[in-house]
Amino acid sequence: MIQRDIAYRVRAIESLSPTLKRIVLESATGDPLPVGAAGAHIALTLKCGDRILRNSYSLIAPSDGTGRYELIVRRTDPSRGGSHFVHDELTVGAVLAGYVPHNLFPSFSHARKHLLIGGGVGITPLLAHLAALRREGARVELHQLAAAEEVALFTQLLAPWAGDDVQVHGGREGLDLEALLSRQPLGTHVYVCGPAALMDRVEGMAVALGWPDGRIHRESFGASGGEPFTVRLARSGGEVRVGPDESMLQALENAGVAAPSLCRGGACGECLTRVLEGEPEHRDHYLTAEEKASGQFVMPCVSRAHSDMLVLDL
């Protein structure tokens, strides 16, 4: 009943540009793949040398009986290693362990209209949404922001849905966000995926224009980024650096620490860890207000630290 891991096989790799690759995965066991809806992502376990990374990638097309998941991976610089591995080492036929699709960025069937805004490789989940919403006959409009040299590439990716309501804008100033949001009909939902600065700008603008929270959606992979900090492990010794784009739990796992987890979203209580020193920044829904104030516990799947160092009873 609980299906956590799947073995994926790389079926195809296509180079879209010097920094973007399209990866097609299929089931390595022959069992059918679970449904991957628009907005869903999968986490893949990548073995890079002696490090194990768990990276999340959005599906770029809904997968419902197609037997494959498609992703686009950008080579980032400096990378934690995952994207270099995918670009330089991954070959067709390779088998990767991963999780079943998880959707934290779904579309809402109540919406009168769907407005999709992407920045750079943040287009990936929006490609899936565009395909699904068009097929359902829903009202949808997409705006993609791209560096000037990538306009042609994204225009090509969007070619199957070309039209007035699908536009690629080159450069940072290419889109008048305020005008775009202001002219949307009541009951529109906006979905944004891209660099944090873009998502903050869209969210801030929408809130300022009076959009209700429930109609503003941003992709986060459930990730919980923030200021980097260091975790010291009191029992096992050693220190783990938590980077700005990973959760404390991911950093612990990557360092080979056996940390329990279940929901990975700050709700179930499974990852509860005792804090011996330092000031946690609580982002969970599990601890009570008193427990949070006491500073004695932290939920590493979502929470971070206000102090540079957190000493944990691990």
């Binding site: 009943m1 609980i2 079943v100 700050g266 179930c268």
Partner: peptide, 19 residues
């Protein structure tokens, strides 16, 4: 006891394949 608040937060995060 805050039972329903906690239960709701848990249920909102129930994932596909993890009932």
């Amino acid at each position: 006891m805050g039972i329903f608040d906690r239960a709701l937060q848990y249920l909102l995060r129930v994932q596909y394949g993890h009932p």
